[in-house]
Nucleic acid binder design. Structure first.
Lengths: 355, 355
DNA sequence: GGTCATTTTGAATTCGTAGTCATTTCTTGT
DNA sequence: ACAAGAAATGACTACGAATTCAAAATGACC
């Protein structure tokens, strides 16, 4: 019981239906729904009763149409196979849900930014969080042209007029370099990646610059550029490095999966970590703490980054022409068993990188 | 240039604007947009030109309102930290994108099914894929009452009138049991979980039944019920099992993360895998193939399951009162280095489980 | 050149909600 | 008891796209 006879298929009860049943006008129903104080308690009561009985739900399309807002936020992600991104997505989803916003997700691996562009321009979403932007992104060009509500999360792209939130990847690279040198590592190698993403570029740059500042060199044969950021790629890279006449005694990998690949590859060739080889990753994905890897890595303040990104985005939705803001949050070096068996790690925060 | 003067903020060009500029009626613009053949090529040309110049995009809310469809599908996921689920989400997203549908994601860890219920009833989504349903789910009760467009993916809940797609978890459990027994394992243990999810329940049940059929026993002290399905939980479980006077020589873990935890825990206590202890997981998440674990596990036909789930859902959206369908797809045992160093594995498909 | 059929176009309408504005009902003070 | 003001309510409308139905334009044919 409690169902209304004659309701249209799929139970589409409208505010008019409710009004009729409660013997009030549709306007009054609308007022009750929106908690307008200008309704007599007695009337409100009656309407609420019918609302409950009919299990009325407002038509979202009509409401969005009328209000000009979708109450949805678009999120463009990439490579959900890399644990960092699901974690980020989870955080975004949780925080948006808390704010009463829905989350529409696009995977930039399947269609790039284009669907998100269109969705935004069609009003499907009120704003977009881009977690996978690169400088070549088509979306970013659009964004730059119009005054769209977009925030880049975990990416920075200079010259683009959108809000951006990232952690200090330059500084993260620096920390790793200083840590390895301070612990007496002699032959330090780097497994990097194609520099499309700003994160990767900055980590490498920060690492290199810091080595230079410490009068160390990163010889070309100690640098491997991975194409795919995959486990296999890390294995391949470490294999090359270990074939060298003088193999490295420490490797910084620009993300954790590369590091794990490198570790598995090194072990497969008989090397012990950390006795023979130190390995450092980046991101501190969940697996990094597991026994098999126990990986020293750099952790980004994910929840905070997400919170700030959402803050910026909602503010921009409210005010499209506000000045553009860039946020850059500090990282943390997490020292685990893949390094540091021989030397005591130095006190953490050395000096600031030059501005 | 190319921007239309006087257009409302955020470039909201309407079909009326386009009509005015192209000197046709709004109806004609609508016809061009929907590729109605009843437009003279010359007129169509003119309208298309203006559409391009104004960079018109239809208002999604108005369109959804009029059409009564949202062109969005809701997906309820849980525990994105477990790699299987991001992989599933990625597959769902890719396939939906190919079909021109958007994907709205809810995390059942933050709010359960309730937001998805409401979204469906408000017409925000045309249908919902539930990947994290349990028998206690509030949504399922709703679904059972109305004739909602919902499909359960990777879950089965008897007595509920919704379409369901899963793989044969009973049979997966059976395969593992038969494999371990055929390979001569003597003391076989099981690390299971709280039986809220049908998948876990079926894996355990299939495993137990198969052991019984082979005249083996699963003594209570060889069974550990994990609460959280976490790595730590696997470690804890294996620690208990290895403290036994007669520790097991093979452990089946109902998912891969438990198995990895068990493996790390076993190794931490000095056991070698597979020499001292075999470990089998379930799901074949990406990490399972990595060198550190090289885990024998059961693989589900994920892409296929997703495809079928979407098929069922779209069919149901078209026809709400069609008979309910349940699909159950076959699994595959993937044998890797965490087992099978000593014995040759038996020919794979033994016999079918009794119907 | 006129008639009829066909093609093409436009005016008007619909969808459900949330506003505006006008009207009715209630309350208060005298 | 009545007026004036306040409170509560209802009639009406807009939003943008798609559709219906009617009207206009075009084409074919004799």
């Amino acid at each position: 019981m409690g169902r209304i006879k004659g309701a249209k298929p799929s139970g589409s009860v409208t505010s008019h239906d409710v009004a009729r049943l409660a013997k009030v006008s549709q306007a009054t129903v609308s007022r009750v729904l929106r908690d307008d104080p200008r309704v007599r308690p007695q009337t409100r009561e009656r309407v609420l009763k019918v609302l409950a009985e009919t299990r009325y739900e407002p038509n979202a399309a009509a409401r969005a149409f009328r209000a000009g807002r979708a109450d949805s936020i678009g999120v463009v992600v990439a490579r959900l196979s890399y644990q960092l991104y699901p974690a980020m997505l989870e955080a975004i989803g949780a925080q948006l849900a808390r704010l009463g916003r829905r989350m529409i997700v696009w995977d930039s691996d399947h269609g790039g930014d284009a669907p998100a562009i269109r969705a935004f321009r069609q009003g499907v979403v009120d704003g977009v969080i881009l977690t996978a932007a690169t400088a070549e992104s088509e979306f970013l060009r659009e964004v730059n042209a119009e005054g769209s509500a977009v925030v880049l999360l975990n990416r920075t792209v200079a010259d683009y007029a959108s809000d951006q939130v990232s952690s200090d990847n330059l500084d993260g690279g620096r920390r790793v370099a200083e840590y390895l040198v301070a612990c007496g590592r002699e032959r330090i190698a780097l497994i990097g990646g194609i520099p499309r993403a700003s994160t990767i570029r900055d980590r490498e740059r920060g690492f290199r610059k810091s080595l230079e500042r410490l009068d160390r060199e990163l010889p070309p044969h100690y640098y491997f550029r991975s194409e795919t950021f995959s486990h296999a790629s890390g294995e391949q890279a470490v294999t090359r490095l270990m074939e060298l006449a003088s193999p490295p005694d420490a490797i910084f990998c620009v993300n954790d999966v590369l590091a794990m690949g490198a570790m598995d590859g090194a072990r497969a060739r008989g090397a012990r970590v950390p006795d023979d080889l130190w390995i450092v990753g980046y991101d501190d994905i969940e697996i990094a703490s597991w026994g098999a890897y126990d990986l020293t890595t750099v952790r980004q303040p994910m929840e905070l980054m997400v919170a700030q990104a959402i803050d910026l985005l909602l503010a921009r939705i409210d005010q499209r022409d506000a000045p553009v803001r860039h946020k850059c949050l500090p990282n943390e070096l997490v020292i685990r068993g893949s390094t540091a068996r021989q030397t005591t790690p130095p006190s953490q925060p050395a000096r600031k990188p030059r501005p």
